Simulated assay, not measured.
Amino acid sequence: MNKRIRLIDSLRGFSLLGILIANMLIFQYGIFGKDEIAYFHLRPWDEFMYVWIKIFVESSFMPIFLFLFGYSAIMLKNKLDKYGKRVKWHLFRRFLLLVIFGLLHTVFLWEGDILFSYGLTGIVMLIFVNRKRNTILYWAIGIFLITSLTNLVPEEEITNKETENISSYIQKANDIYATGTYHEIFEFRNSGEDPYELSDYFYPALIMLTPFITCPMLLFGMYAAKSGWFTNPGPNRMKYGEMALIFVIGGLLLKSVQYVYTGSIFGNVTYAVGGPILAMGYIFTFSYFYSGSGQKYLSFFEGIGRLSMTNYLFQTIICTSIFYGYGLGLFGKLGVLNGFFLAIIIYSCQAIISYYYLKRWKMGPFEKLMRMGTYLSWSGKMQST
């Protein structure tokens, strides 16, 4: 395996750590509860950790995964071109499988799935696969600016009735997730109950708009692959370092606005813009250290990155078994700080298991299914024409 692929795999594994830490808020408090954290009366150290995760982690690691999703799509395109295969049909099948896995994941296991939206975004973004790199860059920047500006729309004040609905819903969710059977949790998760009582058209519209909200980072990943980023990291190390400083500092400042200046009308938009900017900062920071002496340490992330989909799905199985009623029933009880340490322990175990797993097998079970569906081959390998 060449150095470029190892860097991308390691970076993907690194992103999965941040995703797990951010997802711990959903595993512990629910998809709505994590943003209404005041209802849980956190201890001071948990409040500090909650804000830390919001600024340093949430909205800045999933974009890394999406960036690498776009990057890998172009790498696969180049491979398909080399073998004379129909590029868009192969990619369409791959993205469609993600949509299917995502639907199964969110219906039967957990409400915080990202695979469905990523697959949907990939299908829509197929129109850019054969475009020139600058065209992709312009579209990425344009869509990013437009979707970011939508956060300037002022939020309506929550009425007393809505406050009561949210409080009632969160209490109900706490009871069901902490003590319910698998069937009870399944029924609640798929009931369509909405504490905000939004229009019936809101969620179908959101599904349709999601590809345009999430696509900028995917397009940036496509641009990076077409521009040859990370193919020869050594000579570009200083450039990675300079970009890391700019993007990390800029991203952290933007994401901090709504916590430093509470009530700022620009808090939502700066947070929305800061998330992907900080993600790019993490990408450049990781690449800077990986292209130097840090490679021997950062390769720790490589195995889990090669088995990213399998590890992501197993994180759901592990965490729902810990927090839901059909497992240990710790929903809402562990605390944000302890949840952070639990995420580190789970991730470390996965990294060790992945390392030894790959000594015997070349790919994980879900990676194998993805390759089988992409190439229409039982072996999961691309067949010669």
Rank of each mutant, 00 (worst) to 15 (best):
Y297Q: 12
L334W: 09
A279T: 01
T310E: 03
F301H: 10
F289V: 11
F286G: 02
I317C: 01
N268C: 10
G281P: 04
V269F: 07
Y271I: 05
T320I: 15
M280F: 14
L298S: 02
F331G: 06
G325D: 05
I317P: 02
I322F: 03
T316S: 15
S287I: 03
N311M: 08
F340I: 03
S264A: 13
I344S: 12
G332T: 03
G335P: 11
T270A: 11
C319S: 15
L337V: 12
Y271L: 11
I322Q: 01
F286V: 00
M309W: 07
S299N: 14
I304N: 09
F341A: 08
Q315V: 10
L298D: 00
Y312E: 04
T320L: 12
I344C: 15
G281R: 02
F340W: 14
Y288W: 08
F300N: 05
V269K: 13
G274E: 04
Y288A: 01
Y288S: 01
G305P: 00
T310A: 03
Y312R: 08
G294R: 06
Y312V: 09
I277Y: 03
A343Q: 05
G303M: 07
L328G: 04
F341N: 09
G335D: 12
T316D: 10
F266V: 13
K296N: 11
S321D: 04
L337D: 05
Y324N: 00
I318S: 02
S308D: 05
S299A: 09
Q315N: 15
G325Y: 00
I322T: 02
G263K: 15
L337G: 07
T320R: 04
L337T: 15
